[in-house]
């Protein structure tokens, strides 16, 4: 798949969790390809990056009057677990390399703004896209929105709905997605 083309149509999207930034970080291998069994290189442990990762998360998903922030729900710890266990060493190396270019401090918000713009700008040449940022953003969202406090207080998670209403009238300004991530 042509990275640029796929990126364009993905940015016009949607909440389909299986069209994910992972498409890019795996080099746009079709998602239906077999899992690479040769991935045996040493795993990277991202614990040492906890502070930086937490700060990036807080810039993307900050505390506001309305919502708790990424740090308040310990998003950083969740993110480290995901990066340690759920990414191939190839993907981990790419993310680690990307993080090396960032430092936790005043300038970080500006760096994130640049990365976000470059990643989503359809005119950025494929080989210059900060692909690691797309992967990180996805993992940050996952860490935050699947948190218990967020699911039950920000979103309205119900463990056993008990009924179905496919035509529920809602106020679009107030309604939050109940079933993010398929319950």
């Amino acid at each position: 798949m042509d990275r640029r083309k796929s990126l364009q149509y993905i940015s016009t999207l949607m909440g389909a969790s299986f069209i994910s930034a992972e498409l890019f970080i795996t080099g746009c291998k079709p998602a239906a390809e077999k899992t690479d069994v040769s991935d045996t290189t040493e795993n990277i442990n991202f614990s040492s990056e906890l502070a930086l990762l937490s700060s990036i998360g807080e810039i993307i998903l900050p505390a506001s009057g309305k919502h708790p922030g990424f740090k308040a729900v310990n998003g950083g710890e969740m993110l480290v677990t995901l990066l340690n266990d759920c990414y191939t060493s190839e993907q981990q190396q790419m993310i680690q390399k990307g993080l090396k270019g960032l430092s936790d401090g005043e300038g970080l918000a500006g760096e994130i703004a640049k990365l976000d713009a470059a990643y989503f700008d359809a005119t950025t040449p494929a080989d210059q896209k900060p692909v690691f940022y797309g992967a990180l953003k996805e993992a940050i969202l996952l860490s935050y929105f699947t948190n218990e406090k967020v699911m039950t207080e920000v979103l309205s998670y119900v463990k056993v709905p008990g009924k179905h209403d496919g035509s529920m009238k809602v106020d679009p300004e107030a309604y939050t997605t109940v079933y993010g991530f398929g319950a």
Partner: peptide, 21 residues
Amino acid sequence: DWSRGSNMPGFGADFLDDISK
């Protein structure tokens, strides 16, 4: 749902509020 946020540009309080809906 919120997962669309990883395919959307933007970040910050308004972004969070928007993708929560």
